[in-house]
Deep mutational scan, measured.
Amino acid sequence: MIVFVRFNSSHGFPVEVDSDTSIFQLKEVVAKRQGVPADQLRVIFAGKELRNDWTVQNCDLDQQSIVHIVQRPWRKGQEMNATGGDDPRNAAGGCEREPQSLTRVDLSSSVLPGDSVGLAVILHTDSRKDSPPAGSPAGRSIYNSFYVYCKGPCQRVQPGKLRVQCSTCRQATLTLTQGPSCWDDVLIPNRMSGECQSPHCPGTSAEFFFKCGAHPTSDKETSVALHLIATNSRNITCITCTDVRSPVLVFQCNSRHVICLDCFHLYCVTRLNDRQFVHDPQLGYSLPCVAGCPNSLIKELHHFRILGEEQYNRYQQYGAEECVLQMGGVLCPRPGCGAGLLPEPDQRKVTCEGGNGLGCGFAFCRECKEAYHEGECSAVFEASGTTTQAYRVDERAAEQARWEAASKETIKKTTKPCPRCHVPVEKNGGCMHMKCPQPQCRLEWCWNCGCEWNRVCMGDHWFDV
């Protein structure tokens, strides 16, 4: 396979590697080409510095992935760790964990309700045991953590790749202090920090972006993250068709209702045909949960890209028209025109101005929308079919299609509260000796007794199943 190397943020060049090629071997190839010592090179990928003893497969490097290699003399205490030698983080029983690669970060837990604080980093599902597709590297999971809308060759929703760059020099040479644990960490600028490894760059702020994971991409090709779309790892039924499908869209209502993408497309087109989208002054033209839940309008309007190009163009047109109407304007009634106009409040005669090729020149009556006339309008008909009709959803289907309910059931079956801080902690095999993952707590306690870890627990039921 081919990976592209950008040395000291210059133009990239291809390097041929195998899945079992080590990072140090990659350094040696680059060092020979650039005429520099291999031990002064640092390989940066997806916000993480890659260790010498890791392989291309370990690092989730795919065909035509772009890695950054910078030349920086080692500072005291760094060289041993980078070589894969006596790194205290690798000691058996050590409590410190390697910062998780962005290629394996899962933010789907952050669609849980606000009262489930902490689960994004504490609760991990076991539903990723799908067998890898044919042709994928051994052991590589097909679980997708992110979804994007690819405006490039795909023109559809695709699995996405999370990447990070330095907000100062805009190069992907920043190593994160810690990985993101929720969508806010990724979507809110300057929320996460790190250290830029580019020479002479003092940058410390992280800037995240997404790429389409279905095809090789260049540095400049980015895609918009659709953070309401998630892999259906909890096997929730769709609120409309009641099938279990994946991926799904999880509405931001209190129940976190789930809808499959085909039904979401149908829901949007139906509402669009009836012009029953909601115009929100802050958000724009949007839709609420299909069950009509309060405070559930979709905030990231790129989710409506699921409509496809033709329907999305209609959505944008109707949204612009609705904006004009909300501002007190009118639409030209001549067939084939429909231009938005903003006449004076007491102006009865409205002319669709033909300047700049935008208007048709038609003069019409503001009251009856017919060709302009003197005197009273002959008839004014009330528009028919403008009443909002509820999208029919079966109550039982709505009850079963809740992301929140599956989460709470998982928590109930696989977790116990920490005796000190009461945060839910998952036990997935292993011994009875637990350690609270909350940095402010870190209590060592017994899963069996529910009390602080002691010699009695150690001698009596340390390794009970």
Rank of each mutant, 00 (worst) to 15 (best):
S198L: 08
V29T: 11
D53R: 04
I44M: 07
I122K: 15
F24Q: 11
C368W: 02
E399V: 10
Q252K: 08
F13S: 04
G336Q: 07
D464G: 15
F364A: 03
R234V: 04
D53V: 03
K211M: 13
S378I: 12
H433C: 05
T351W: 05
G308T: 05
G93V: 13
I188D: 06
G361D: 06
Q440P: 08
A401M: 02
D130F: 09
I188A: 08
P439S: 11
W183Q: 00
G213C: 07
S116K: 12
V423S: 15
S101C: 09
V36A: 04
P137T: 13
E452A: 15
V278L: 09
C150N: 02
S109V: 03
I259V: 07
I298L: 07
G152Q: 14
Q40I: 05
L325Y: 04
Y318F: 06
R170P: 00
D53Y: 04
G12Q: 09
Q165T: 13
Q282L: 11
E221T: 08
A405Y: 12
P180A: 03
N313A: 10
N58W: 05
L342F: 10
T125N: 13
G385K: 10
V425C: 12
C332G: 03
N52M: 02
M432N: 06
G430T: 15
A138D: 13
W453L: 03
S286F: 00
P343F: 06
E409R: 09
K369Y: 11
S205M: 13
M458F: 12
S378C: 13
S181H: 09
R271F: 06
V465W: 15
C337R: 03
F146K: 00
P294S: 12
V105W: 10
M434L: 06
C196K: 01
V111F: 11
K32S: 11
V111P: 14
P417H: 12
A291F: 09
P288C: 05
S127M: 11
C289P: 01
G459I: 15
D262A: 04
Q63E: 14
G12F: 04
C431N: 15
C150G: 01
V111C: 12
W183P: 01
Q165F: 10
W462G: 15
K27E: 00
G430Y: 15
C212H: 00
V117L: 12
S108K: 11
S233Y: 11
P137I: 13
N313W: 15
R245Y: 04
N454T: 15
E376C: 09
